[in-house]
Simulated assay, not measured.
Amino acid sequence: MEGVIANSNGKIWVFIDVAVQMEILMNTDQQLSLKLHHQDLGTDFIAIFVYAKCDAVESELFDIGFKGSPFTWWNGISAGDCIFKRLDREVVNQQFQNLFSNIEVEHLSRTGSDHTPLLLTCGDGNVTFSKPFRFLNFWTNHESFKELILQNWSSEVVGSSYLNFS
């Protein structure tokens, strides 16, 4: 399958968007290092995926948080000795954060492993949600309706007046 790579023992799986070309720099049982080229941005970056316990090291990497379940690992025991932990995380440096203004990590549903897959989405942050305006006739019966409309129509607009309606 194009856009999918697994490390040598199949413990690390990476799914890459079609706009990204990848080159394998290192592939071991514990690590998968990729050089990624984002075609739309014309930018190269290195991504390193590690399957191991990582101690905190002094670095310029930032945990970018997540949405979804707070846990990424389960010990597989459903009784009293059940343990859930957040072992897996995405960390990025400042340059990566500057490259993508909208970075999001989602903890997906765990299937076939004791670890939860992580989905890293990088976007330009220009996502807008359009909420259509709906006029409701009962507003005209409100005692301050006419005054409010006159006040807003006569106020000074800074910038494009069309922006006030979006």
Results as ranks from 00 to 15, higher is better:
residue 14 V to S: 14
residue 115 H to M: 09
residue 20 V to Q: 11
residue 9 N to E: 03
residue 73 W to A: 13
residue 142 H to F: 03
residue 36 L to N: 12
residue 40 D to K: 08
residue 19 A to G: 12
residue 127 V to D: 02
residue 110 R to F: 14
residue 154 S to H: 07
residue 103 I to E: 00
residue 101 S to H: 15
residue 14 V to Y: 05
residue 97 Q to W: 08
residue 69 S to A: 09
residue 50 V to Y: 08
residue 121 T to W: 00
residue 108 L to Y: 06
residue 24 I to H: 10
residue 111 T to E: 13
residue 96 F to T: 04
residue 14 V to E: 12
residue 19 A to T: 10
residue 21 Q to F: 02
residue 165 F to I: 15
residue 147 E to D: 14
residue 104 E to L: 01
residue 43 T to D: 12
residue 85 K to M: 07
residue 28 T to E: 10
residue 130 S to F: 07
residue 138 F to C: 04
residue 159 G to Y: 13
residue 133 F to W: 10
residue 89 R to T: 04
residue 58 E to T: 11
residue 122 C to M: 07
residue 148 L to K: 13
residue 162 Y to N: 06
residue 100 F to T: 04
residue 17 D to R: 09
residue 95 Q to A: 14
residue 105 V to G: 02
residue 129 F to D: 09
residue 58 E to F: 12
residue 75 N to S: 10
residue 26 M to Y: 08
residue 49 F to S: 01
residue 110 R to P: 11
residue 4 V to Q: 13
residue 87 L to R: 08
residue 13 W to N: 04
residue 126 N to Q: 14
residue 86 R to F: 12
residue 107 H to P: 05
residue 73 W to R: 10
residue 14 V to R: 11
residue 165 F to Y: 15
residue 162 Y to P: 00
residue 118 L to K: 14
residue 52 A to D: 15
residue 60 E to K: 09
residue 60 E to D: 07
residue 165 F to G: 06
residue 27 N to K: 15
residue 34 L to W: 00
residue 81 D to R: 15
residue 87 L to C: 06
residue 92 V to R: 03
residue 110 R to N: 09
residue 76 G to E: 03
residue 86 R to C: 09
residue 35 K to W: 12
residue 114 D to S: 00
residue 44 D to G: 15
residue 144 S to M: 10
residue 45 F to Q: 05
residue 98 N to Y: 07
residue 76 G to N: 13
residue 130 S to I: 06
residue 22 M to G: 09
residue 38 H to K: 09
residue 15 F to N: 11
residue 55 D to I: 11
residue 30 Q to P: 01
residue 88 D to K: 02
residue 18 V to K: 14
residue 75 N to L: 02
residue 34 L to A: 00
residue 143 E to D: 03
residue 64 I to N: 04
residue 140 T to I: 10
residue 44 D to R: 13
residue 71 F to K: 06
residue 47 A to N: 02
residue 137 N to E: 02
residue 142 H to C: 00
residue 37 H to D: 04
residue 151 Q to E: 04
residue 66 F to T: 02
residue 92 V to Y: 01
residue 156 E to H: 13
residue 42 G to N: 14
residue 154 S to M: 08
residue 2 E to K: 10
residue 60 E to P: 01
residue 143 E to L: 07
residue 53 K to G: 06
residue 55 D to Q: 13
residue 86 R to T: 06
residue 46 I to S: 00
residue 106 E to G: 07
residue 5 I to H: 13
residue 72 T to I: 05
residue 72 T to D: 03
residue 95 Q to K: 13
residue 25 L to G: 01
residue 132 P to H: 10
residue 20 V to I: 14
residue 161 S to E: 12
residue 38 H to G: 06
residue 56 A to F: 12
residue 146 K to W: 12
residue 35 K to C: 05
residue 145 F to Q: 08
residue 46 I to C: 01
residue 114 D to V: 06
residue 101 S to W: 02
residue 90 E to M: 06
residue 149 I to R: 03
residue 11 K to Q: 09
residue 124 D to K: 02
residue 51 Y to W: 06
residue 124 D to H: 07
